[in-house]
C-alpha cells in the first residue's frame, strides 16, 4: 500500500519533524517500501492471540513514598537551550 503525500505530511506533523522537500520525496518512497514489507504480517492469522507488549512476566514494582534529593535549579537548567531567570524559556505558546 503506497503512502500518500498527505499521509507522510500528516505523520511528519504528528512527529514534529520538519522535512526538506528532498527528504519528503525520499521518505515517501522508502516508507512505502518498508510498509509494503511490513504488510506481510497481514497474511498471518492472529485471531485469539493475546498481544505481548513485554517479554518479562513481572508485575507490582513500586518504590516507597520517600523523598530523594532534587537537582538544584542550576543543575536542572544547565542543559537548557534558553533560560530566563529560574525558568526554561520557550517561544510564546498560544493556547
Amino acid at each position: 500500500m503506497a503512502l500518500t503525500g498527505d499521509q507522510v505530511r500528516w505523520v511528519a506533523h504528528l512527529a514534529r519533524l520538519e522535512l526538506t522537500e528532498e527528504e519528503f520525496q525520499l521518505f515517501t518512497g522508502q516508507l512505502t517500501r518498508i510498509v509494503d514489507f511490513i504488510d506481510q504480517l497481514q497474511q498471518l492469522n492472529t485471531e485469539g492471540v493475546e498481544p505481548l507488549a513485554h517479554a518479562l512476566p513481572i508485575h507490582n514494582v513500586f518504590r516507597p513514598d520517600e523523598p530523594a534529593p532534587s537537582l538544584s535549579v542550576d543543575e536542572a537548567l544547565a542543559n537548557a537551550p534558553a533560560r530566563k531567570g529560574d525558568f526554561y524559556s520557550v517561544p510564546a505558546v498560544l493556547d
Binding site: 507522510v8 505523520v11 511528519a12 506533523h13 512527529a15 514534529r16 519533524l17 520538519e18 522535512l19 526538506t20 527528504e23 525520499l26 521518505f27 522508502q30 516508507l31 518498508i34 510498509v35 520557550v90 517561544p91
Partner: peptide, 20 residues
C-alpha cells in the same frame, strides 16, 4: 521551533524510524 529543531537535529535514519 519543535519541528525545525527535530528536523535539523536528527539524522535521516532516525527521522525515518520516528515517521514509521
Amino acid at each position: 521551533m519543535y519541528s525545525r529543531s527535530r528536523g535539523l537535529g536528527f539524522g535521516k535514519e532516525v527521522k525515518r524510524r520516528i515517521m514509521l
